[in-house]
Amino acid sequence: MSRELEEEVGTAGLPTGDLTLGQHVGSGEVPRYRGGSRTPGWDDAVDLTKDPATIPDPSTCHVPEDLRAEIEAHMAKYPDTRSAAIPALMAAQKRHVWCTPEAIEQVACVMRLTPGYLVAVAGFYDMLETRPVGRHKVYVCTNISCSLRGADDLMDRVVEEIGDDPDFNVRSFECLGACDIAPMISVDDVYVGPVALEDVPTMVAQIRAGDEVLPEQQIIRRKSVDPNAVST
């Protein structure tokens, strides 16, 4: 699930993704992403000019060879190939940045599932994006333990620093399982923390430059607080 849907009264037209990414094509009544795909959401009717979304036929759906191979490798790991849905969607997302309709169709074609099945799966999980996002994942944990240690301010600071850079996908995230380094951030799957407000510019610069992010604060390098703590 890419974004919590806002439910306040009045927001009848819920955000249906960043339409600035694409242009409006067609009649103008139906907002679309680049590539002609319609934006999905609560408040949208279906596009009656489309065909029903059945399992894509391999003779008409093109899947890049390496993606197909990766998905098939995942499928081979399980007694029931459908188990590979999440890994396969992840693989496609890596390639397309988010689970674009095209990405979903490609997975559907290889896995012999309907795109509907897969988009329902993708929509359920926080890390699978069903709307356009930037390439760099910056998940700021704002759950209880981190917020007790200043995560909300950190989130604001990160948003401020990154601004509207379309290359970023900044989100406040639920507990990431690293409250020992609160407040913490997962930057493209690398856990760092505690992150001070002053660290933010460095961190963002490192992401932009493709460098390692806050190496000293990465959890992977952290020692257990007190392995023999029982002995107090």
């Binding site: 007790l148 409250c179 020992d180 257990s224 607080v225 007190d226 392995p227 703590a229 029982v230």
Partner: peptide
């Protein structure tokens, strides 16, 4: 046990 929040030394501990 994982201790977090307003403690001086948050982290994992093994206790009896």
């Amino acid at each position: 046990i994982s201790v977090s929040g307003h403690v001086k030394r948050p982290g994992n501990y093994e206790i009896e």
